[in-house]
């Protein structure tokens, strides 16, 4: 069965074979792994999964996975798409702070990576950039405004050509 997951922001496709209730085979590009669950830990403990014959202590909580010393964010591609519901990109404030500078206005054409707004949070500047080419449809804040974390700062619509 073909599956799509978003890992570290990139949509990845792999083949999933369910061998049993606690056993899977994953084919991703040239890598194939067989994995089965050995122990389901308590909420404060790791789970143990045997991957290609080796026991790995892993943990998954929601979209977050820890394996072999590193953490990964994994999102279901379909769920992520419906969450966005037509609005492209993530232009929310990373944390509470103050708007230092607004470089664009509604109706303006922008290119991917272009700086749209600068905010200050915890004494550091953070630039909100356009996730893709498109047109700014709304700017919700002005310079000097205080904002909470996770609020939408601007809205933009993608160029039709860049949609797949």
């Amino acid at each position: 069965m073909k599956k799509k997951l978003i890992l570290a922001g990139n949509t990845e496709e792999f083949n999933l074979e369910r061998i049993g209730p606690d056993s899977v085979e994953i084919q991703y590009q040239d890598s194939k792994v067989s994995a089965h669950k050995v122990i389901s830990g308590e909420s404060t403990q790791f789970d143990v999964i045997n991957i290609n014959g080796r026991n790995q202590r892993v943990k998954r909580v929601g979209d977050f996975i820890s394996i072999d010393g590193k953490n990964y964010k994994v999102e279901n591609a379909m769920a992520a798409l419906s969450k966005k519901s037509g609005a492209e990109g993530n232009m929310t404030s990373p944390m509470p702070g103050k708007i230092l500078k607004v470089m664009v206005s509604a109706g303006e054409k922008v290119t991917s990576g272009q700086g749209l707004l600068v905010m200050e949070a915890m004494k550091m500047e953070h630039t909100i950039k356009a996730p893709q080419d498109g047109v700014v449809s709304a700017v919700h804040y002005k310079e000097g405004d205080l904002v909470d974390g996770g609020v939408e700062l601007l809205e933009m619509e993608a160029n039709e050509s860049s949609e797949d």
Partner: peptide, 23 residues
């Protein structure tokens, strides 16, 4: 992230339900 590690991450995602933090 290596190809193999990505495959391992996907395997973990499929095998664990992610309802870990009940505390």
């Amino acid at each position: 992230i290596s190809e193999e590690m990505k495959a391992m991450v996907f395997a973990t995602y499929q095998l664990c339900d992610g309802r870990g933090a009940k505390t």
